[in-house]
Structure formats: C-alpha cells, structure tokens
Amino acid sequence: MSRRTSSLVITAALAATALAGCTSNSPSGDASGDHAKLSVSSDAKTCDVSSKEAPSGNVVFNVTNKGSQVTEFYLLGEDGLRIVGEVENIAPGLTRDLVVKATPGKYFTACKPGMVGQGIRSAFTVTDSGADLEPSGDDKVLAQNASTGYASYVKDQTEQLLTKTGSFVSLYKAGKDDQARALYADARRHWERVEPVAESFGDLDPKMDLREADLEPKQKWTGWHRIEKDLWPPKTGYTRLTPAQRATVADQLLTDTRTLYNRTRTTTFTADQIANGSKELLGEVATGKVTGEEETWSHTDLWDFQANVDGARVGFENLRPIVQRKDKTLDTSIATKFTALQKLLDQHKKGDGFVLYTELTPAQVKELASGVNALSEPLSKLTSTVTL
C-alpha cells in the first residue's frame, strides 16, 4: 500500500529518482480532440479542478503539485470509496496525467497532500455526451480479449490468495509462528499482484494492507502488517498479541480476503483500468518495495517487488496487441525495460524467494530504483495509448 508519508531508508536523491519515472501519463502525441482535458492544481489546502463536470468518455486530469508535499489525485465513485482512477506520488513541482474512461454519473475528485487522510474532496459530475464508450472495430475485439484475459488472471490470483491466507491464519492462530513466517511472503504475493483491484473497492485495502506508519489517530490497525509485526516483533517495547487477539485479527483478514474473492468473481475491466493498474503497481514498487518501507518487520520487500512487477507485466501483456497496433515503438520500449528490470531483480534471488531487503547494499538498491525509473517512463504512456 502506497499511502504514506515517506521517511525513506535510502537517500533523498534516490527517492527522487524512483519518483521521477512516474511524472507523466500524457499522450505520446498531440490531443486528438476526442477527450476532455481538465487541469488540477494541488497544494496543502486546495485541490482546484478547472471544471466540476466533464462529458462522458475519455477524460484527462492534468494534475500539478504546487505544494511542498508529495500528493495524489483520485477520481472516486459516488460512494466516495470506489476508486475509478488514481495517480500517485506526484512530487512538488511535477505534473502528471490521470486518464480515465468515465461513464455518466456523480463522482468525487480528491487530492491527498502528504498521501494521507481522506483528502481534499469536491463533487464532480460526468454528463451524458451520448458518445458510445465501447471500443470499435479492431480495438473492440482486442479490448474484449484484454478484459477477458485480465479478469481470468485476477480470479486465479484471488483464489490462490484466499487458499493461502486460510492456511496462513490457521498457522498463526495455532501459534505455529515458524510455519506462518515461512508462508507469509508467498501468500502475500497474490495480493501484491492484484492490489489495484482491491484498492478500486475502496474499503478493503486500508483494512487489509495498512502499514503502522500510515495509521491515523484512533484508526484500528488490522490486516497483513498487523500480523507481520507480531510475527517479527521488535526486540524491545512491544507486547505480543494474546491468542484471543491473534484470532480476532486473523479472522478479520480471512473475512476481508473472502470478500475480495467474492467481489472479483464478476468484476470486469476496461482497457484504461488495466493500464492504470499496471502503472499503479509499478508505483507501488517505487514508493514501497524498492525503499524497504513495505515490509518493515519481515524485510520481505523483494517478494512484493516481484509480485508487483508480475501484475504490471500481465496487465501490459493483455493490452499488448492494442499497443502493437497503435505504437510499435512504445511496445518495444516497455517490453525491453520489463526484461531489463527482471534481470536486475533476478540477481537477488535465493532459492524459491529472495534475499531480505536488509541484505541489499545501497548500490544495489540504487540499481533497482534506476530500473524501475527506466520502465516507469514508457509505461506511463500506456493508458493514453490504448484509450485515446
């Protein structure tokens, strides 16, 4: 989960490098005139959108961070929970685009200075333009194939997640800590591969994947990282959970996982959702895994790193026929940089997994961050290429 105020364990210069690759989701060419483009200005106190409404169809939010903190921008559903689209980790002074295919209805826009809290929200309306939002011609078939393929992938990953989470929480509740620790990273990889899907539901991600550093005052801490700390406790100043407390947090995680599983049985995905999900997963790598912030206690960040890359690659591969038809140069660039990043990650494999994050040298962390940065630049163009 990437909603955090960064206290990076690597240098500020490296953090800037990791974020720099996520500075654009702009169309690679001039606007074609078939989409609405709105400007968004974000600072510590405001989230000014140039218009409170837009016609249905492709909508581009051009977000500029004029504040002093890293910010995020969201388009939320009418319930204020469902995430329609998001663009994260917009450093001060940078501009990034969020591209979504929006249907008529009521929404909210939100900026999150510091990437915490509910954000600065405003009502937003998408009017009915009368336009057919379905792809046409060859794109329609390719988009349908991408949706079918990605939906099958999500179903498979959430099924494996539910199975392994059930085993994990049973071991944890039974006090079989060594076995639970051995299963932790393996089970979580299925979550990390499809995390943007869970985030799209709004209510599940905070309950399942919130880090302690991101807790707000009086917020209840549940989920994976609550159990992680109990399995890898600090040497001082921490009291282990009682068996009853363990059962409560474990049962909640399994219940939430089952909810995610049930919801994804019938979930469908559009091309822009798949593309944005791929970019979000790489953003997760840049702000959590390559910095060692995600797995504070277990240090299994590289397992998560690999899973995020897996999910991003699968999203791209499902969309690749569309990209190849529209922009062969971009297709080659993304594919080549995925391969290069995987080679860097492979250097740190150990048995069926990876070395702990704490075993990496600063030079190795910097090398991984550079690989993420190199892939982020072409991948940032994926959504606009497949939708505009």
Rank of each mutant, 00 (worst) to 15 (best):
V99K: 01
G21D: 01
L161Y: 05
L142A: 14
R211V: 13
L14T: 08
T236S: 14
K112D: 02
A54F: 12
D209R: 13
T46M: 01
D203S: 13
T71N: 04
A15D: 04
F108Y: 12
A247S: 14
A185E: 02
A182M: 13
C111I: 11
E294L: 07
D186R: 11
I10V: 15
R313Y: 05
F73N: 03
A131P: 00
M208E: 10
T332G: 09
H299N: 13
F73P: 00
T71C: 10
V70Y: 01
P55S: 14
P362R: 10
E199K: 04
L260P: 01
L38K: 07
S136D: 03
D251M: 00
Q252I: 14
V355K: 04
G119C: 08
D138P: 00
D48Y: 05
M208I: 15
T268P: 00
A36E: 10
D230N: 10
K112T: 04
N373A: 14
I227Y: 03
V99T: 09
E216G: 15
K235Q: 14
D352H: 11
S370C: 09
L330P: 05
S56E: 00
S7L: 01
Y74R: 05
Y261W: 07
R193W: 09
G237N: 02
G166N: 07
D97C: 14
A369F: 06
T239H: 04
A307C: 12
V9P: 01
G80D: 00
Q324S: 11
Q364S: 13
R226M: 15
G80M: 02
A312R: 06
T387K: 09
K66I: 01
M208C: 13
K326F: 00
D230L: 14
Q157D: 05
A20I: 09
T268W: 02
F316V: 12
M115I: 11
L133F: 06
D331Y: 01
L281V: 03
I322R: 07
L142R: 10
G288A: 03
F201D: 05
R82F: 10
V314H: 06
D48T: 15
V87D: 09
L281I: 05
T336H: 02
N58D: 07
A131F: 00
S26I: 07
L379V: 07
D48G: 02
L94N: 10
T23W: 11
G57A: 11
D132M: 03
E195L: 12
V63W: 13
E78W: 12
E88Q: 15
L241A: 08
E192M: 15
G351A: 07
T17P: 09
Y238R: 14
L171I: 05
T383C: 04
P217A: 05
S298H: 00
L388E: 05
P104R: 04
T358E: 03
P217E: 07
Q179A: 15
S122L: 10
F168Q: 01
L171M: 07
A244K: 00
A174V: 09
S370A: 15
T17R: 14
V87A: 10
K328H: 03
L330S: 03
R226T: 13
T127A: 05
V290D: 11
I334E: 00
W224E: 01
R320T: 07
